[in-house]
Amino acid sequence: MKNSISLKSLLPAFYFAIGIAIVGGIWELIAHLTKNEIPNPSMTWITFKEVIQQPMQDDPDIKGIGTKLLSSLKRVGIGFGIGSLIAIPLGIIMGSSKTIMAILNPIVQILRPVSPLAWFPLGLAMFKDSPAASVFMIFICSLWPTMINTSFGVSAIPQDHKNVGKAFGFSKWKYFIKIMLPYSLPHILTGLRLSIGIAWMVIVAGEMLSGGIGLGYFVWEEGFNGGSVAKIIVAIIIIGLVGLILDKIFMQLQKKFSYAA
């Protein structure tokens, strides 16, 4: 009995191993077919070990991969942070007023599908500084999902909850803190989770355009221009893992603040 339970808990790891084996197999095959133009897993592993040596090195011309990663994360953090600070209040206002929703929603709907990269040149024109332009781009693309989800959450507060506030004489502030925010928090967190996902995707592209220090620039400069496909693959894996961690963090927050009705 005990045995079967521990076996069951190992199952996800087992499936993960199968998945990795399949991807590894296909990768090995592609490497073979391209005559190692695309390096095989073991060659990539060697490059990976090289890349992660002295990760925090921060010399004027040699930057460790960790330093680059932090630099990218910092840009995402600033852009996402400012974006969220604007998107959440705007979303709340949109959700609580049908008129403001009617005014803002069409604009949001037009701007939301625009590729974040299209904002880059605009940022560049505004700030005359390419790292600032990529932060601007992150800022813009962090707005929409948070705004839309927040406004949805606020506008979907059930009449039952509103009635509690009305019947028991809640002040506007108390209603906001004790009913509106707790109800919409899971929606806000969903918006933030979507936003951080997009922001992380976009920073790589942004840094390819802007240069400077960061994972995106690493992919472009050291990987493609430096002629090391292995470095590109290493960067892709690192970007993927960091993205996964960011997503998990927001997933945990969502879990923490969701409630059973």
Binding site: H161, V164, G169, A260
Partner: peptide, 20 residues
């Protein structure tokens, strides 16, 4: 003219706040 705390209401579907 509006709800007031001189009247206590017990709602049909309890209407408790699920996060508290």
């Amino acid at each position: 003219t509006k709800p007031g705390t001189d009247r206590g209401i017990v709602f049909q579907n309890y209407s408790l706040l699920p996060w508290f």
